[in-house]
Design a protein around this nucleic acid. Structure first.
Lengths: 234, 234
DNA sequence: TGGATGACCAGATTCGAAATTTGGTCATCC
DNA sequence: GGATGACCAAATTTCGAATCTGGTCATCCA
């Protein structure tokens, strides 16, 4: 059964890579990038250390793929939500979901916050920029604003660049949590509501979009998410 | 002339304290709290090191007063702006001024951002909270929201606590600068405009306040600023 | 015979004790 | 009697030795 074998080997390879990534993810959250050793990853994946290097050239590249996958997965979740309900494609709702996603998942939160306690050297790219930029978040955001404008969901009176910057700053502020006010007093979904309200008030057009327009917009938003996901595969 | 003397000595004391604080401020910005030595402060103020300890019990207390004074001064600037034009008492305008103030002045920015690179151990109080809380910023903010609501400048449909949190988060986001989008592309006053617009849209009532209401509100805002300043004197 | 492995190596990191620095005091001086 | 700087203990820095770890590759099976 040569066919079985030649098919089985990549299959085994793939499953092994998954095990390695899972072990890496666990250890990343428990110890942070710096303290995680390749040896320990291999031990958890129950393989030899050298085997890790059959999959990735370096420790950094292994974790880079891990981060890309996490973001890829998160984008998939957003897309699913929009497919279920086109209203989730509205700016305020998208931002709301991004916020909640980051509240739930420590890895994506670390990515967006550039948390060097967890990400270590990964927090900043060789070019000296936050990882989140490297992963194309700002490109996606710019594209989304474009789509929203095209479909009349956000006002076109202000420059698109301003709106992109505003969304980014406001989102960052809510994720960081304010500084002067203790943020623990507010549950995540209450904070998410305040964030959504702020984005809606600052950017969205006052007119309620009709069903058809919403569907069309959702379609383009899904395209943008797809494109962003595509840019994340190795 | 015993009168002259007894008046002259505290006068000299006061002037000397100012020299010490000025030297400390310079060094703080140049080197950061940790690297600044009391010896160097004394040298710059052209006095003996022991003399510094005639004014403050410890290095920390010296810098604590410096920070209080900087914030005190900043509040004075805000108040002056409002006295000149009551419209400066509107939420969006106050926040705008706070943002610009922090863009201009590295010390108050460090305070608000909790920049431990500059503030060292001062960034976090013994109780483990950001300095900005210790300095009563959140109390002032809460009071301002109260005033604005009382004068119908912000909607009373939402809870005041939510509004306080929103202002804090948005302001923090703009001061931090977004993460995904390179912030250098925007000049400070453009960012200030975007911030003001966001606050206005998210919180202010749509109706333009009449002159009289604005004056009355400005009066109470000035009172709140005064109270905050009062809380900052030793 | 080719994929898996872990002993191995060089460079990075950590450790720790000695050396230096610095916040704070106080005997001395003007 | 207010100002000072030598002085001290505690904190910090230094730097070489010891340890650790990313990455390699000769060896070993299946």
């Amino acid at each position: 059964m040569t066919l079985d074998r030649s098919a089985a080997v990549p299959q085994a390879d793939h499953e092994r890579a998954e095990r390695i990534l899972a072990a890496a993810r666990e250890l990343l959250l428990a110890w942070g990038y710096k303290r995680v050793t390749v040896d320990e990853i291999a031990r958890r994946a129950r393989i030899g250390k050298g085997t890790v290097y059959l999959h990735w050239k370096t420790k950094q590249l292994l974790f880079a793929e891990l981060l890309r996958r996490e973001l890829h997965k998160a984008l998939g979740v957003f897309a699913a939500g929009i497919r279920e309900d086109p209203a989730a494609a509205l700016p305020s709702q998208v931002v709301r979901q991004v916020f909640l996603q980051q509240t739930r998942d420590p890895v994506t939160r670390a990515i967006h916050a550039g948390d060097s306690e967890i990400l270590g050297v990964l927090a900043i790219t060789p070019a000296g920029r936050p990882v989140i930029q490297e992963l194309g978040f700002h490109i996606l955001l710019a594209r989304l604003v474009e789509v929203w404008r095209a479909h009349g969901l956000v006002a076109v009176t202000a420059p698109a660049a301003d709106q992109v910057y505003t969304i980014d700053a406001v989102l960052t502020g809510f994720i960081t949590g304010g500084i002067a006010v203790p943020a623990e007093d507010f549950r995540p979904d209450r904070r998410a509501d305040l964030l959504a309200h702020t984005i809606k008030a600052a950017l969205e057009t006052s007119a309620t979009p009709d069903e058809a327009a919403l569907r069309a917009a959702a379609h383009d938003v899904l395209d943008a998410l797809d494109a962003a996901q595509g840019a994340l595969v190795t």
